[in-house]
């Protein structure tokens, strides 16, 4: 097979592909949230990485203080982060409606610095451990590679979240409101839809997805204040490649970019850290609206 032909051990190839798929799962869920937020609020949410971190910390404290396990955290942490997002939108971002979008970017960037700074101050920069849930310990040997159950679950969970969000946007009434609100919020409001509420909910949902990604990451990466700050840079590149505000684009591009990163690790390890940014540059030149973006 191909891997043998190229003289690459299949364990390495598939191992990296799986790792890439897992990174891709996080890219997909995080960029999905960014796309939802950008659509309704026209804001590039720089606080996304910090809110992802908040999701991981929420699971940590739910376990430590309340004894609520991973599965409980999977439900509760996104709700907690979503609620934090609703407060942020309602009391901070809303005040910026009508001014240049740059202010939203600056505000969310500042928020990320403040939130991450506070967490570093109180918990130190190093990570706190979060256990893999009992049911997902171990893995399965596929012959050519070993797949840990937890990592497989992360990919499945990400796909479920992406499909659910797509369904929500494309097949429900709320989704029709969100699409219409992205296009022409004032007319939608004149029809009697409470657009300010819809906007708050969109932001809440977008950051709840970040919180969910944080829960998924907790057993893999450790819970650390700066866990989101590096990841989010790559996620922004993914969003640019997929096209701002495109739900499908965010999900598909996220998974694809993770895989490409994984493959690059196999064939040209030195380039793996930059490959996504190179792709971003090429896409920006050839198709500035992104692969799935609507060109105006």
């Amino acid at each position: 097979m191909l891997a043998d032909l190229l003289g690459i051990p299949p364990q390495l190839l598939f191992g990296q592909l799986l790792l890439g798929l897992i990174s891709g799962a996080f890219y997909a869920v995080l960029s999905l949230g960014l796309a939802v937020i950008f659509g309704m609020l026209n804001i590039v949410n720089f606080a996304h990485g910090a809110l992802y971190m908040l999701g991981a910390f929420a699971s940590y404290f739910l376990l430590k203080i309340l004894g609520i396990n991973y599965w409980g955290a999977l439900i509760l942490a996104p709700i907690i982060v979503g609620a934090a997002g609703i407060v942020i939108e309602r009391f901070l971002l809303r005040r910026l409606a009508g001014v240049d979008h740059l202010y939203g970017l600056l505000l969310t960037f500042g928020l990320a610095l403040v939130i991450e700074g506070l967490f570093v101050k109180f918990f130190g920069a190093s990570g706190l451990p979060y256990p893999t849930p009992e049911a997902l310990k171990g893995g399965v040997n596929l012959g050519f590679m070993f797949v840990p159950w937890y990592r497989a679950w992360v990919v499945v969970a990400a796909v479920i979240v992406c499909v659910f969000t797509w369904w929500l946007f494309e097949r429900t009434k709320v989704g029709a409101y969100l699409r219409a609100g992205t296009e022409n919020p004032t007319l939608l409001q004149a029809f009697g839809v409470n657009v300010p509420l819809l906007t708050t909910l969109a932001y809440g949902y977008g950051v709840a997805l970040a919180g969910l990604a944080g829960v998924l990451a907790a057993p893999i990466t450790q819970v650390a204040p700066l866990m989101g700050s590096n990841l989010i840079i790559t996620v922004f590149a993914v969003v640019v490649i997929g096209g701002m505000g495109s739900i499908m684009g965010a999900a598909v591009t996220g998974l694809a970019m993770g895989m490409i990163e994984g493959l690059t690790k196999v064939f040209w390890p030195e380039a793996s850290a930059t490959v996504i940014f190179v792709i971003m540059a090429i896409v920006l030149v050839i198709r500035p609206a992104g692969l799935f973006g609507r060109t105006a």
Binding site: N184, A190, F191, V195
Partner: peptide, 24 residues
């Protein structure tokens, strides 16, 4: 009144630019 409450008095508005949504 906030804009979204006014239509609920029984108003229907057809804007000059028609306002058909491209994403729907």
């Amino acid at each position: 009144s906030p804009p979204h409450t006014i239509a609920h008095l029984g108003l229907g508005y057809c804007p000059e630019e028609r306002g058909i949504f491209a994403s729907l």
